[in-house]
Design a protein around this nucleic acid. Structure first.
Length: 697
DNA sequence: GGTAACTGGGTTTTT
DNA sequence: CCCAGTTACC
């Protein structure tokens, strides 16, 4: 997150946009000087004055390089690093950018530009001004799943759960809520346009949302949306906003096409006059519509900026033309057609579409190709498997493990979502914020005989009065008999943790408190305990547990194994990532599995023209990550299509996007020749059941 | 009234 | 694999 105080080992540098490796982004040299090897357009970006600057940057056109060069240029002109703010949309992009910026200014005494995601920077300021915002003794950051739990609680409290009436599910409610906030649109509009089936419940939803906000406030909790809301409010405040805005001379915003209204507001408040503002975006890569992101903001910016301050980066330095042909044919919708990517690198190999028999065949085929490329000298970390949904790589991961290929997965199941980690975070939050009812609830629920109802009563008691140990004794007395012993131990240990000095000692006592609870709750308790012990150890180097928890919530370990310790430099691993998480990155070889209707594009998104268009951009983003080789895989049959499998065969499982025009840019290879005879399989199944019948006889 | 144990169905994408 | 719903037990 912030350059000066980054928690150790929280993330791993992923193989990113060129830079250091051979064949990296952009032409020419590798030195840190801002002008080395930039082309005219990139140079214009780097050396632009203080006026507003809008960069329209196609995929692979060296945008990060131009941005970093601009930072170098500004520094050379005498701007202090900390007067520059780099805002990015995703954490991986933030890491990548800050790492490169750090390399660049390595010599300038360890001072680095500010940078991070909107949420991380927001947290920094909301914390600093917590008192003004109305949290006199600090606040806790609510992870998304916690926000969901709280919404669920409120829903129950309002008598809106149960089967008696159909009411939107908690997940839907959270969605609606977040959408209202992020698009700055009233509930009624959101319901009308995006959730029409929920409209009958508008009144109840509105009440629920009020209660939800009030509840967060009274517990000193802020969810991700609140961080942005409070930051915006802070910036708009007179005179505090002026103070915050004056912290920087330059604000550089990446992936502008993915920002939502709230974030655009923040940018506007940061640089009201546009002086010192630079935004970079590419409409063709807008893939965060589900978070309220809207490329319209970029379009607005194009109109709002004077023509002289718009620079277009159009030369693609990344990919060979064969790959760009596929990209161009995929992204041919109206909103995308404007930029036709042209390569600086020659034709290269034609990308391949492999039609496999099923997902198993696909997995084998992918690993075969990964290893073949490895034999040719392409390191594993120069290759990536990019998926639309995290579970699309399940079988690939299995095959990789079976064949001993190391890999690292980004996106999908999050570390923080694991229930034992949530238990740990909740207990730790209580040390500094005893008003946190949600944390109390979670902790109490871990004890025997304390279910939803009793937990609710006890929570009221725990947060109602003061937070002295004497009150905790009362709490124990009120608990059901079977829970008293363990609850007493839990509370005592937490009380000791509270007294303890230093984040590490506190964290370890929290683990002590949880140990017996987790041991009796989970079959795989040893594994889970090891997890949180490592987590506690990671807290070692920071002074404040609360601050560390907030950072953990905002920037959780992304890949499985990130907590295992600092990565070895010589470590080689294949990257498995969602397309969303792969944004802004590149690899020599890219594999895209499950390019079939229902997966790419996702069935859940093709209901509307806008949804379908975003799916198309998603494939566009995936394809343009590849530098030299690109493989798409179409399993002809997927297990959840069992009933329709014969139809699938007939249709050859082509994705909605793989029409003749796209296929013309691809070599289609049929790997499904050895298809098992379905009729024979049926006979085999019959024989097995017959044999079983014999057993029962 | 409340908890625990079991069963069956469904699963996007991120801060 | 996590959820909601069901059932059996206190």
């Amino acid at each position: 997150m912030f350059a000066p105080a980054r928690a150790s080992g929280a993330s791993v540098a992923a193989p990113g946009p060129g830079g250091t490796g051979p064949g990296g982004t952009g032409p020419g040299g590798t030195g840190p000087a801002w002008d080395r090897g930039l082309d005219a357009a990139q140079l214009a970006v780097a050396t632009h004055g203080a006026g507003p600057l809008l960069v329209i940057a196609g995929a692979g056109t060296g945008k990060t390089r131009a941005l970093i060069s601009r930072v170098a240029y500004l520094l050379q002109g005498g701007t202090s690093p900390e007067r520059i703010l780099l805002l990015t949309f995703t954490r991986r992009a933030a890491d990548e950018m800050l790492a490169r910026a750090a390399r660049l200014v390595g010599a300038s005494g360890g001072r680095r530009p500010w940078g991070g995601t909107f949420h991380a920077v927001a947290h920094r300021f909301v914390s600093a001004y917590a008192e003004v915002i109305g949290f006199p003794s600090g606040f806790s950051v609510l992870a998304p799943s916690d926000a969901c739990d709280l919404m669920e609680l409120m829903r129950t409290e309002h008598g809106l759960s149960g089967t008696a009436q159909r009411f939107p599910r908690t997940a839907t409610l959270v969605d609606i809520y977040s959408r209202c906030i992020n698009t700055s649109q009233p509930l009624s509009d959101i319901l009308a346009t995006d959730f029409p089936w929920c409209e009958p419940h508008r009144g109840a939803i509105a009440q629920l949302f009020s209660a939800f906000t009030a509840s967060k406030r009274s517990q000193a909790l802020a969810d991700f949306d609140d961080l942005l809301l409070y930051w915006r409010a802070l910036l708009a405040h007179e005179p505090l906003g002026r103070q915050v805005v004056a912290s920087w001379d330059y604000v550089l915003v990446d992936e502008y096409q993915d920002l939502n209204r709230l974030q655009v507001d923040i940018v506007r408040l940061l640089r009201p006059s546009g002086q010192g503002l630079m935004v970079v975006g590419d409409e063709a890569q807008a893939i965060y519509g589900f978070r309220g992101g809207s490329a319209e903001c970029l379009r607005d910016a194009v109109l709002a900026f004077p023509a002289s301050s718009v620079v277009r980066l159009e030369r693609n330095f990344r990919s060979v033309q064969g790959i760009l042909d596929v990209a161009n044919s995929v992204g041919r919708d109206d909103d995308v057609a404007r930029v036709v990517l042209r390569s600086d690198r020659g034709r290269g190999a034609r990308p391949v579409l492999l039609r496999c028999h099923d997902a198993h065949g696909e997995a084998r085929s992918i690993v075969d190709r990964v290893l073949q490329a490895h034999e040719r000298g392409i390191a594993l970390r120069e290759q990536a498997v990019l998926v639309r949904a995290a579970h699309h790589s399940d079988l690939v991961e299995l095959e990789l493990s079976a064949r001993g290929v190391p890999f690292r997965k980004y996106g999908g199941l999050r570390f923080l979502e694991a229930s034992h980690v949530k238990d740990f975070v909740a207990a730790a939050r209580l040390l500094d914020n005893p008003h946190d009812q949600l944390a109390w609830y979670r902790l109490l629920r871990l004890h025997d005989d304390i279910g939803p109802a009793r937990a609710r009563d006890l929570v009221a008691m725990a947060t109602g009065g003061a937070d002295r140990v004497a009150d905790w004794a009362e709490l124990v007395a009120a608990a059901p008999a079977r829970a008293r012993g363990s609850l007493s131990f839990t509370l005592e240990t937490l009380a000791r943790a509270r007294q303890a000095q230093g984040a590490r000692a506190r964290a370890e006592l929290v683990v002590d408190a949880l140990r017996p609870l987790l041991a009796s709750r989970y079959v795989d308790a040893p594994v889970r305990l090891a997890d949180i012990e490592r987590l506690a150890a990671a807290a070692g180097s920071v002074p404040e547990l609360a601050a560390w928890l907030a950072e953990l919530t905002l920037d959780p370990p992304e890949a499985t194994g990130d907590l295992a310790g600092p990565p070895h430099l010589d470590e080689d691993y294949l990257v498995v990532s969602t397309i969303h998480s792969a944004k802004g990155l590149e690899w020599a070889v890219v594999h895209i599995p499950h390019v079939v209707d229902g997966c790419v594009p996702s069935d859940l998104a093709v209901g509307t023209p806008a949804g379908l268009a975003e799916e198309r951009r998603l494939l566009y983003v995936a394809v343009t990550r590849a530098r030299d080789e690109l493989y798409l895989y179409s399993p002809l049959r997927l297990h959840f299509h069992r009933q329709a499998s014969d139809d699938r065969h007939a249709f050859a499982a082509l994705s909605r996007f793989l029409d003749s025009r796209v296929c013309a840019a691809l070599d289609v290879v049929d790997e499904a020749v050895e298809r098992p005879d379905v009729a024979a399989c049926g006979r085999l199944a019959a024989a097995v059941s017959l044999a079983l019948e014999d057993l029962w006889r």
